[in-house]
């Protein structure tokens, strides 16, 4: 009896986390079934592809910010950073006429560099993440407008650029499944990030920092350096988001981006990642992002007034987090 006592809650915890994932997934399926029953036009290949396409950018941003949130931080700059990465890609491709691959590297590199700067504000200068990234958010928005002279940069001179998000490698292989590349990239980014979180030292420190930063520091880990690395990785992922949105729009829109951070954070939260840090999964975030876009698309297909769409989305966020709270309360009692 006494011997097993310690392991019982451990198992409960594990199954609790799995149940939370299942819960989110079940909600997603329930939404899909509900909308499919409500409208014959919802469950069509083209509409499902549209939903996935709409998830790709928010999903990638959400994956990036999940890392930061697990460390117990927050990143408000991801929306405008995405735009800034898109703008820098435009500068390299359209203005300088460089080859496509350099544009791709620019987007990721710009994201990682800006992430590193945010990380430096947070880790070295000890500015609270909320403030540091709020500052970054505004600086990057301004820089995007300055660099572009407030006009969008179009990618008409770079053939193939729109293929990054809009083309379909899968569709070329399987004709019935025109899965946009943007979605494929989202899944790849999610898979790689999940691998990093679960298998590598960087991932381990991400959880450890969010769990008890002081304890990590006392264990002799250079917490500042690792935190900066995590912000840089998240920035690089956001850079990929910048590529996707600019490829989708065939342009870098300098005024875009504000508000995207909150949508990404909402997806992370719906996916069960705790804003308190230390806990979270990429799969959950992915499901959270899908729930959000299924919801918006479904309500639109049903011609629900846009005002009500906003209300419902807000309510879903509250319900999702409340369900998580209930689960946790249950787990802590068990």
């Amino acid at each position: 009896m006494t011997g097993t006592q310690a392991t019982i809650p451990a198992q409960q915890r594990r199954s609790g986390a799995a149940r939370q994932m299942l819960l989110a997934f079940a909600s997603l399926i329930a939404l899909v079934i509900g909308f499919s029953l409500a409208s014959p036009n919802f469950f069509q290949v083209s509409n499902i592809m549209a939903i996935l396409q709409a998830t790709s950018v928010n999903g990638v941003l959400a994956v990036g910010v999940t890392l930061i949130i697990i460390t117990g931080g927050i990143d408000l700059s991801i929306g405008t950073l995405m735009t800034f990465c898109a703008v820098m890609t435009g500068v390299v491709l359209t203005w300088a006429g460089m080859p496509l691959i350099l544009g791709v590297l620019t987007a990721i590199g710009t994201g990682a560099a800006c992430g590193l700067v945010s990380g430096m504000f947070v880790a070295r200068m000890k500015i609270p993440p909320f403030i540091a990234t709020l500052g970054m958010m505004l600086m990057l928005k301004g820089l995007s407008l300055i660099v572009t002279g407030t006009k969008p940069i179009y990618f008409n001179d770079t053939p193939g650029f729109t293929q990054i998000a809009q083309g379909s490698v899968v569709g070329a292989l399987i004709p019935g499944l025109p899965l946009p590349n943007g979605v494929l990239i989202l899944f790849l980014v999610a898979a790689v990030t999940a691998w990093i979180l679960g298998r590598t030292v960087l991932g381990r420190y991400t959880f450890a920092l969010g769990s008890n930063e002081e304890a990590v520091r006392l264990s002799g880990v250079n917490t500042d350096a690792w935190k900066m690395a995590i912000y840089a990785l998240a920035g690089g992922i956001v850079g990929i988001g910048g590529l996707l949105i600019s490829s989708r729009l065939n342009s870098a829109q300098p005024a875009l981006g504000l508000g995207y951070e909150l949508e990404a954070i909402a997806a992370v939260v719906i996916g069960g990642t705790s804003l308190a840090g230390g806990r979270g999964t990429i799969l959950g975030t992915l499901i959270g992002a899908l729930i959000m876009s299924v919801l918006t698309n479904g309500l639109r297909v049903l011609s629900v007034a846009p005002e009500w769409q906003t209300v419902v989305t807000g309510a879903i966020i509250i319900v999702a987090v409340y369900a998580d709270q209930l689960r946790r309360r249950k787990a802590s009692q068990g």
Binding site: L202, R204, A208, A215, S219, V221, R279
Partner: peptide, 28 residues
């Protein structure tokens, strides 16, 4: 207690000194 509550026992013990494989992977 200076432990990371969300990590497991072994992860706590070896924090900062994880046995590594290639690509920064941890030898769990």
């Amino acid at each position: 207690l200076a432990l990371m509550r969300d990590l497991n026992v072994a992860q706590n013990i070896w924090i900062g000194r994880e046995p590594r494989l290639s690509l920064g992977r941890i030898d769990e």
